[in-house]
Design a protein around this nucleic acid. Structure first.
Lengths: 316, 316
DNA sequence: GGCACAGCTAAAGATTACCTTTAGGGTCAT
DNA sequence: ATGACCCTAAAGGTAATCTTTAGCTGTGCC
């Protein structure tokens, strides 16, 4: 009374769906003869014919026709099971991401993914759960001119605005706008230096008509995270992309002392390129979709934020 | 990329559904160790645990939990496929039925069943597609007092009414009712003789207050079909159950020259008894349901027919 | 605690299902 | 015709999967 000939049923379903034994054989990674044998075994077990080899492909016999839709549904479900279980498999995803992006955007979010797929290990820029292996970059995330080819996923461009510590923001709150910067150190982030659209202090001050001596003087930072650290310690002001600040804006640990309307979009964008071979692994594809979803969230958040400049020209 | 470990998935689903490896092993007709191996093989292939052996049964791990419902659905569908294909298998169903019932009710209808399940062969009272084999009665159909036990399926009781050929019906159409029978032969069917509720000519005529000499005289028939033949040849009248006449009433090849209100229900009923072991074969169970459905159809038809006596007291 | 019992696990050998290979026979288009 | 394509048949080998046997672990009972 037990269900037998599962492999025969599988072959039968595939052969009917694909229309030929050969196609089914390719899908199953076996020889066409094996598929024929599987089906024949079931036919002989049942004592009835199941398929007729007609011109241009296979056709089911009347005896089988009633069961076909159930057969198809069954293997559809099994396919889903297969995918879901494969997603839970142990796998290492190796990511090479520009350091600031990895530290400030990717790593804080990736715990969310790891919670859903606990057996997936990450190696980000050589560090993480999985050890570094040579030649194993599944996903590279860069910041640069937008590529229009299909192999790159656009994540988002950023929105740059001066930031400071809450303390400094408080101290300048009552000053006239044009005097706000005078006297404070200006921190310069190398990160955006190549971006033709990203403002530096010199250009931003000129556009905003602020009073400021020596706008190019100040400390240069190669790493945004180091600059943020300095800013939290009241070291001065920096022009930084909001997307990388994440919670720091919302929870008040960093402030935006100038109107949103003074911000500018970068022309460079963050984009991810996946190794085509890596996308054969369901985990990688799953991660890709997750990454796209997260990026869309950030993009929408930035858009809404920048939009708010028009609605209310408030200081933050 | 092909779906593998089908047997493992089957064992997994069964073990989870039944709650233990042992129960699954019984269902699959293998040893418990084999079930454990199947599941373990899948676990090792995936590299993740799928079940935990907790107190009182198996429980799925979080990694598996999301896929369980799909797994269950898949094997539910496959079970349906299995049943449907098994129904199409070649099988012989051996029926012992009281002859008149077999000839007049069962055989005319059974073509319908055979069309749906072309590979099922029937042997009815030793005749038919399948040869007679000793000790192989799957279903016995009798006419007698209704059994109240669960092993007998009630099919229907019959409704008895005088019948004649159309010609005779036409000839008596203008006579006074009480003179209708006088002069015609009365045919007696042995079939209903044991039934205490079934009228014979003598009792029927007395109740209807007809004028008739020697109501017990006439020809006796052991087989209803022979009597019907005679009636079609204008041999006279017979009191017969309508269920066995089938199309003959509807298409006018036999007539009911007296009002429906003069009819009587039998106290005996047709009932089917299936061999318990035979019911393990899906074809037999399927036939049983078909038989019940057909019997219900006849029962409803009879009821509606008898009911019509009250609505319109018309002659047929 | 000691003990039997039930259910799962481990290891090894046996068996069977299943696959590949090779060869052959249809059908269709050139 | 003839070659391409696809399915079928038969034979042999491989690997999956089963059984057997023994051992382990927790549970209930004395």
């Amino acid at each position: 009374m037990a269900l037998t000939h599962l492999k025969s049923l599988q072959a039968l379903e595939l052969a009917l769906r694909l229309g030929s034994l050969q196609a089914a054989a390719r899908a199953l990674w076996v020889t066409p003869a094996a598929v024929g044998q599987r089906i024949k075994a079931l036919e002989e077990y049942l004592g009835i014919d199941l398929v007729v080899r007609g011109r241009q492909g296979l056709r089911p016999t009347p005896e089988l026709s009633g069961a076909i839709e159930h057969l198809r549904a069954a293997f559809q479900e099994l396919g889903t099971v297969d995918t879901m279980l494969n997603l839970q498999r142990g796998d290492e995803i190796h990511i090479a991401a520009i350091a600031d992006f990895a530290d400030l955007w990717l790593k804080p979010r990736i715990e969310d993914f790891k919670a859903a797929y606990p057996h997936v290990l990450f190696c980000i820029n050589g560090e993480g759960d999985a050890p570094l292996r040579i030649g194993q970059i599944d996903c590279a995330i860069s910041f640069g001119p937008q590529h229009t080819n299909a192999t790159d996923d656009l994540l988002f461009g950023d929105f740059l605005l001066p930031i400071s510590s809450p303390e400094i923001a408080h101290r300048i709150a009552n000053l006239a706008l044009r005097d706000c910067l005078e006297g404070w150190p200006l921190l310069h982030l190398d990160f955006y230096k190549e971006d033709p659209g990203a403002p530096n202090w010199s250009s931003w001050i000129k556009v905003q008509h602020l009073k400021r001596t020596e706008p190019n003087r100040g400390i240069r930072f190669q790493r945004i995270s180091a600059a943020l650290e300095a800013i939290r310690a009241n070291a001065g002001f920096a022009i930084c992309g909001l997307a990388l600040l994440g919670e720091d804006i919302g929870d008040g640990s960093l402030n935006l002392p100038f109107p949103v309307s003074t911000g500018h979009w970068t022309t460079h964008v963050f984009q991810a390129r996946f190794h085509p071979e890596a996308l054969l692994r369901p985990q990688v594809t799953c991660f890709r979709h997750w990454l796209q979803g997260q990026a869309t969230g950030t993009r929408d958040w930035l858009l809404q934020f920048a939009q708010s400049a028009k609605a209310s020209n408030m200081k933050w």
